[in-house]
Amino acid sequence: VTTYKLVINGKTLKGETTTKAVDAETAEKAFKQYANDNGVDAVWTYDDATKTFTVTEMV
C-alpha cells in the first residue's frame, strides 16, 4: 500500500489530500470521485516519481 497525493488547482476548490491505495490506478479512481463530488472538472496529470496527481481546472 502506497500513499498518493492529490493537488487541486480549482476555480472554487484548492488544496491537497492524500489516499492510501494498492496502485496508482486505484488512487486515481478515488481522487476522480472526490473531485467529481466537489464539482471539479479539470485536466489531470500524474507524476510517478512523487506519487502525486495534480488536477487543474480550466478557467
Rank of each mutant, 00 (worst) to 15 (best):
V1G: 09
V1P: 07
T2N: 10
T2Q: 11
T2D: 09
T2H: 14
T3H: 04
T3G: 02
T3M: 10
T3C: 13
T3Y: 06
T3S: 05
T3Q: 07
Y4P: 01
Y4A: 01
Y4D: 01
Y4E: 01
Y4R: 01
Y4I: 02
Y4L: 01
Y4S: 02
Y4K: 01
Y4M: 01
K5T: 13
K5A: 03
K5H: 11
K5P: 02
K5N: 04
K5F: 14
L6E: 01
L6I: 03
L6P: 01
L6S: 01
L6T: 01
L6N: 01
L6G: 01
V7L: 06
V7G: 01
V7H: 04
V7I: 13
I8Q: 02
I8L: 09
I8Y: 11
I8P: 00
I8H: 03
I8T: 04
I8R: 01
I8M: 10
I8W: 14
I8E: 01
N9Q: 08
N9C: 14
N9E: 06
N9G: 04
G10A: 12
G10C: 15
G10K: 08
G10F: 15
K11F: 13
K11D: 08
K11W: 11
K11Q: 12
T12W: 14
T12M: 09
T12C: 15
T12F: 14
T12G: 11
T12N: 12
T12I: 11
L13H: 12
L13W: 15
L13T: 07
L13V: 10
K14I: 10
K14S: 11
G15R: 13
G15P: 05
G15K: 13
E16N: 07
E16P: 06
E16D: 05
E16K: 06
E16C: 15
E16R: 07
E16L: 09
T17M: 14
T17K: 12
T17R: 13
T18I: 08
T18H: 08
T18G: 02
T18Y: 15
T18E: 09
T19H: 07
T19R: 05
T19V: 14
T19L: 14
T19F: 14
K20N: 11
K20T: 11
K20Y: 11
A21T: 03
A21C: 06
A21D: 01
A21N: 02
V22L: 10
V22F: 10
V22Y: 10
V22D: 05
D23A: 03
D23N: 11
D23Q: 02
D23S: 08
D23P: 01
A24V: 13
A24F: 14
E25H: 09
E25C: 11
E25L: 10
E25G: 07
E25N: 08
T26A: 12
T26F: 04
T26M: 10
T26H: 09
T26S: 12
T26G: 06
T26L: 04
A27E: 00
A27G: 00
A27R: 01
E28V: 05
E28Q: 10
E28G: 07
K29R: 12
K29I: 09
K29N: 05
K29C: 06
K29Q: 08
K29Y: 06
A30K: 11
A30S: 07
A30I: 15
A30Y: 15
F31M: 02
F31Y: 01
F31S: 00
K32L: 08
K32N: 03
K32S: 03
K32W: 06
K32R: 14
K32F: 05
K32P: 00
K32E: 03
Q33L: 10
Q33T: 08
Q33V: 09
Q33R: 10
Y34C: 11
Y34G: 02
Y34Q: 03
Y34R: 03
Y34D: 02
Y34A: 03
Y34L: 07
A35I: 15
A35Q: 04
A35N: 04
A35H: 08
A35M: 15
A35F: 15
N36D: 10
N36G: 14
N36C: 12
N36W: 15
N36H: 14
N36R: 15
N36F: 14
N36E: 13
D37K: 12
D37E: 13
N38S: 10
N38Y: 15
N38M: 15
G39D: 07
G39F: 15
G39Y: 12
G39T: 08
V40N: 05
D41E: 11
D41L: 11
D41W: 11
D41R: 09
D41M: 11
A42C: 12
A42L: 13
A42D: 05
A42M: 14
A42W: 15
A42T: 07
A42R: 05
V43A: 06
V43N: 08
V43Y: 10
V43P: 04
V43G: 04
V43E: 08
V43K: 08
V43H: 09
W44L: 06
W44A: 01
W44E: 00
T45N: 07
T45R: 06
T45Q: 08
Y46S: 00
Y46C: 00
Y46R: 00
Y46I: 01
Y46T: 00
D47A: 02
D47C: 08
D47H: 04
D47L: 02
D48Y: 05
D48E: 12
D48W: 05
D48R: 05
A49I: 09
A49G: 07
A49C: 07
T50H: 04
T50N: 06
T50M: 05
K51W: 04
K51R: 09
K51N: 05
K51S: 03
T52E: 02
T52K: 02
T52R: 01
T52N: 00
T52H: 00
F53Q: 00
F53L: 02
F53Y: 04
F53A: 00
F53T: 00
F53R: 00
F53V: 01
F53P: 00
F53M: 00
T54C: 06
T54H: 07
V55E: 00
V55S: 03
V55Y: 06
T56N: 07
T56I: 09
T56F: 08
T56G: 05
T56L: 06
T56D: 07
E57W: 12
E57S: 07
E57L: 11
E57R: 06
E57D: 10
E57H: 08
M58K: 12
M58N: 10
M58C: 13
M58E: 11
V59T: 11
V59C: 12
V59S: 11
V59E: 13
V59A: 10
V59Y: 12
